[in-house]
Design a binder for these strands. Structure first.
Lengths: 142, 142
DNA sequence: GTTCTTGCAAAAGCTTTGCAGGAAG
DNA sequence: CTTCCTGCAAAGCTTTTGCAAGAAC
């Protein structure tokens, strides 16, 4: 189990939350994969080991973990949201192939600072993915 | 009727598309409001004058107009997409009050250029809104 | 008249909720 | 044993689709 996941379980324990099958399994899964998973992806993986875990439990678990700051999700327009262990940074999703690019938060800092100064708006660049096209699918790349 | 809307109707006519009640009404509505409307908002306005226009017609009309480059939509995470006459620029939506800030595209150009150079990814900053908090709801403003 | 568009109804995709039984501590 | 969590079923919200009737040109 990766350090992220161990830590998340520790946090649960420290705060007196119950460590259930769904919670442990989902945290382990999110800790093991570098990918960005939808609730359905997560349910599929969980079912492989624990077929009794219901979809609604997956959603409720993700919601709880997010409330406690252990998990985050982001949207990319059409389709389901993506979930991952907390580690706020922006994402860019290719409109053609769905590939997700993790962008370090620092790349957005000048923009965030500028928008704050000029418009009085504090951007949370991690909550919604930006849509675009990756190298292979860029309009200029053919 | 605003110039944008007149122009959009002209384009339809010039391309030999049919000018139907739904199309004309929706274009006029989008031309008249500075707001960003959901399909449901649009249907409500259209119904006021033309109660027979069905929700599915609203969606199909918006889809067609978008295909022809006259309308655009963007997403802001949870909830319905927003539609407006074409005029690509990024949006920032306040997570607290839902207020939408229009951001000139030029503000994003340095970021877009940098991400293209550094990551080979062409961002389309207009398709997904960025989430954040406006002046009154910023974490630091209380 | 011919072709494109619409109204209706039904369903699809993602997510939330009420409730009663069950597990964690 | 008490409180919190879960399974199930049902529904909610946004959006899409098939089809036959209807409107635009």
């Amino acid at each position: 189990m990766r350090a992220d996941a161990v830590n998340a379980i520790e946090v649960l324990r420290a705060e007196g939350r119950r460590i259930t099958t769904a919670r442990r399994t989902i945290i382990e899964l999110l800790g093991e994969t570098p990918d960005h998973l939808t609730a359905e992806d997560i349910a599929a993986h969980v079912h492989a080991a624990h077929p009794e875990v219901h979809m609604s439990t997956v959603y409720r678990t993700l919601e709880s973990l997010e409330t406690w700051g252990l998990v985050e999700h982001f949207h990319h327009g059409h389709g389901a949201a993506f979930f991952h262990l907390s580690a706020s940074h922006p994402h860019a999703v290719c409109a053609e192939c769905g590939r997700v690019l993790d962008v370090p938060a620092r790349e957005f800092m000048p923009l965030v600072d500028h928008v704050r100064d000029a418009y009085g708006f504090e951007l949370d660049v991690a909550h919604n993915a930006l849509i675009g096209r990756c190298l292979e699918h860029a309009p200029s790349a053919h």
